[in-house]
Each structure stands twice: as C-alpha cells, then as structure tokens.
Design a protein around this nucleic acid. Structure first.
Length: 271
DNA sequence: ACCACAACCTGGCCGC
DNA sequence: TGCGGCCAGGTTGTGG
C-alpha cells in the first residue's frame, strides 16, 4: 500500500541486499503479476543469468536495473511485498513470483490482493511515460503545477491522486498536504489561486520529504524489507483521525468520500 | 479531454 | 457461526 516515501525506503533497503546477485531461475505462481513480457516463461528465461546492478525509483515504481541494460520494474500497489531472504524458508500463501539468487538467497514477491505488477523491459519509459514530474525534483514548480491544474473541475484531492499530474502522491500524503496548505479537498483543482497552488506544491514536497526522513508510514501489516517499520504515521495530522480534534483548532476531523477514497480534513482550517 | 465509477482481488472487522 | 456490508496507503478501463 505504499506511496512515494514508502517506495523510496523500499529501494534504499533492498539495494544492499540485492546488488551484485545473479538470478539462477524463477517461478511465477500468479501469471497476471507479470505485466511484461507476454509470458511468464519468457520472463523467467530473460532473467536467468542476469545480475542486479543499479537501482532507482520513479513515482511509486521501483526500478531494479540488470547488467544487460534491462530493468525489472515493480509496483506494489495495495499489498505487494518484496523480500530478499534465505531460499529454504517456507513460502507464504501469497507468494506470486520468486526469483532464485546465488548465495542461497531468493527474491520473493508476495501480494495478498494480486494488484501488484512486475515488468521486465528494455526501455522503462514504456511503463513510466504517463507519469507527471517527480514531486521532489526541480521540474515540479508552482508554474508547472498550476498549468497542470488549470481548467480542471475535478476535486483537488482527486487530482493529487492522478499520477500524470504529479507522481508518487497517494491517499495519506494527499490528505496531509491539503491540511498543511489549508485547502479543502473538495475544491476544484482549477479554482485554486496562484498562492494556493504554490502553498500546495510546497506542502506536497514537505510531507513527502518528512515521510522519507521517517522511513514512511507503517499501518496495518506494512513494513519495508528490513522489517523495521517507519514512523511517519505518528505525524499524521488528519489521516485516519476521524472524529479526533484538529491539532490546530480542536474541531473534530471529518471523513468524506472523494475519488472513491476516504478523505480526512478539518472543516474549520481547510477552506 | 475530462470526469465519475466499476473492476481488479483478498481478508479483517462490525452488526445482526 | 454465518452472512452481508464496509473498510483497506492503487491503477485501469468504460461510458457519459
């Protein structure tokens, strides 16, 4: 269920565990997990003998680079989990793809809800081309953000979740950023003033940066590869605080549904 | 082009 | 205990 800070933490932690290891073989237990190439056989065949040697992230996508120039792209969606572990551990019932590695290790992708996807591609752009700018990068400017929101009538909450506008924001960080910028989540995206657009852009960057610094939010069963949970959930000001007092004004936090997602906000502070 | 919503899936929890 | 309904940090496809 991770968003940008959780995926960033994932990449940071899986890199030292995976770097330099070769793929000896693999098994696919749920075919639809493999989004490219066409068949699981082709996927496993293309990976055999390859070595992991560079790592990255784009939005909520993990990029695991191989020594032949190809990239293994992993999206955890809601319940995906990636682990490097000893090959003799019993497999859990949600294991979807397993790659056998040298050194008695394996890379295991488990996913209770089966929404997660893995691509093996030559050109990552084939998967990533629709994504908007990296929110912590230089191209995510107030002017660029304003242009992306101009004329849009959908709620600003829905637009923050749209990965083509800005990449990596999900339900937690959208709600937290809107509170920080004091903007009501139901406002139309195109109706925000230049000042509000700039404040929201700054708020998105602030909550994501703090999320990364705290190694993400750990709710329910989520934990990064090390198993050491992040702590940003302790900093949530509105997310899943329905009925609890706003930390700024004491008004009970409300929950509504927007873009089919639970949305939490302070009806007093956010206008 | 944009917008809202069903669909993709499993499992936990709550009320009856 | 069982059943229906709702909830879950995401994305894609469809119809208007």
């Amino acid at each position: 269920m991770p968003e940008l800070p959780e995926v960033e933490t994932y990449v940071q932690e899986i890199r030292p565990a995976l770097q330099g290891h070769h793929v000896l073989g693999g098994r696919v237990f749920w075919e639809r997990t493999i989004a490219a190439p066409e068949s699981p056989d082709e996927f496993v065949h293309a990976l055999r003998g390859r070595r992991f040697d560079h790592f990255g992230r784009r939005g909520k996508y993990m990029l695991l680079g191989l020594d032949d120039g190809r990239t293994l792209i992993v999206h955890l969606r809601m319940t995906g989990e990636l682990r490097v572990e000893a090959e003799d551990l019993p497999l859990d019932k949600h294991a979807r793809v397993v790659l056998d590695l040298d050194g008695g290790l394996r890379l295991r992708f488990s996913d209770q809800r089966k929404f997660g996807r893995i691509w093996l591609v030559t050109d990552p752009q084939r998967v990533l081309h629709k994504l908007g700018p990296e929110p912590l990068g230089e191209e995510f400017t107030p002017a660029q953000f304003g242009t992306a929101l101009a004329g849009r009538t959908a709620s600003i909450k829905a637009l923050l979740l749209d990965q083509s506008i800005v990449a990596g924001v999900g339900n937690i960080y959208a709600d937290e950023a809107l509170f920080l910028a004091r903007i009501h989540p139901r406002r139309g995206g195109g109706a925000l003033s230049d000042l509000e657009v700039a404040a929201l852009r700054d708020a998105v960057r602030a909550v994501l940066a703090q999320g990364i610094a705290m190694r993400g939010s750990s709710l329910q069963n989520y934990a990064p590869p090390s198993g050491e949970k992040g702590s940003f959930q302790e900093m949530h000001v509105v997310f899943r605080r329905t009925g609890q007092p706003c930390l700024t004004c004491g008004t009970p936090i409300e929950r509504i549904k927007l873009a089919q997602r639970s949305t939490h906000f302070c009806p007093q502070c956010q206008v």
